[in-house]
Design a protein around this nucleic acid. Structure first.
Lengths: 151, 151
DNA sequence: ACAGATGGACAAGCAGCTTGTCTATATCGA
DNA sequence: TCGATATAGACAAGCTGCTTGTCCATCTGT
């Protein structure tokens, strides 16, 4: 073991933050390279929520941890750029159900492919078995899901 | 194995981002609770750089990936709040060497303790051996170090 | 039917970052 | 030694993404 046990927690935190930064940057670069150059990394968290069965602006706001107004601004932008459509909400005349447009789905597929490509080097570095064990152990930590950058 | 192999990369990315978010929030909450309530998570990245042998405003800017002006603003704030001191730079009359004040060091110690506390639940969830293996494998991925939030 | 909660929009303001410009000092080549 | 160029840092102006505050329309529970 190369780390003194007392320093493992700090090393773990630093590694996770570093990896997260690299992943966000790597995915974003690939998504931009795929032609979706009018998006920013933060938009991905909105896509993830909307693609999962649709959402209202208020639900999105809570998911992202921002105010309704910030969420509405984000949605406005995504609608203006053609990634998201507002449809009437079945069963609530106040709300609008947000759905991904075809371009939105295309971007989501590109982002998934980008994530796979960004992770590939790590997968290779560890080998299939150790990588699988890593994913399993990370999953056992049961984080509450990627909400938003937040800092 | 509960994950189909083809979905492991996406699961990995999602888990790392989720963990990073939880860690940042967990550390920040504890640092605030320790009395350093006039700081934001992003400041930690500046502390990390300055504490490591001091730095100039321009070096900090490059490390954080922002402009010199943004860096200078950040430093102004940290100086105003008593965490950082500007000292003359030995060997370059243009530059100022940034150093942590005693309060800055106290905050750094509190942040380290906060990180250890934030990671502790994960350590317990996996047990000492699996956690050590996790840290080892994450280290083998060799990320370039936590630079800044960036997204 | 009415009171309170909730989805969403409009307006104003602020914090953190950007670009552009400037001075003082450092560095390098003739 | 000196002149050209690069660099550290500061000043000014502006933009963007977020905030709070207010308002209306619609839903929900009693």
């Amino acid at each position: 073991m190369s780390e003194p046990a007392a320093q493992q927690p700090l090393a773990f935190a630093a590694l996770v933050l570093a990896l997260a930064g690299e992943l966000v940057q790597g995915v974003h670069e690939r998504v931009v390279a795929a032609g979706f150059d009018d998006l920013r990394p933060a938009h991905g968290f909105a896509f993830a929520r909307i693609s999962h069965g649709g959402a209202t602006t208020a639900e999105l706001a809570e998911h992202l941890g921002v105010t309704k107004q910030a969420s509405a601004q984000l949605v406005d932008e995504l609608v203006r750029k053609g990634y998201v459509e507002r449809t009437p909400h079945p069963g609530d005349a106040r709300a609008r159900l947000l759905r991904l447009s075809e371009r939105g789905w295309a971007c989501t597929r590109a982002a998934d492919a980008a994530a796979v490509a960004a992770v590939a080097p790590y997968q290779e570095a560890l080998g299939a078995e150790r990588f699988a064990a890593l994913v399993r152990d990370l999953g056992a930590l049961d984080p509450k899901g990627p909400i938003r950058p937040a800092w």
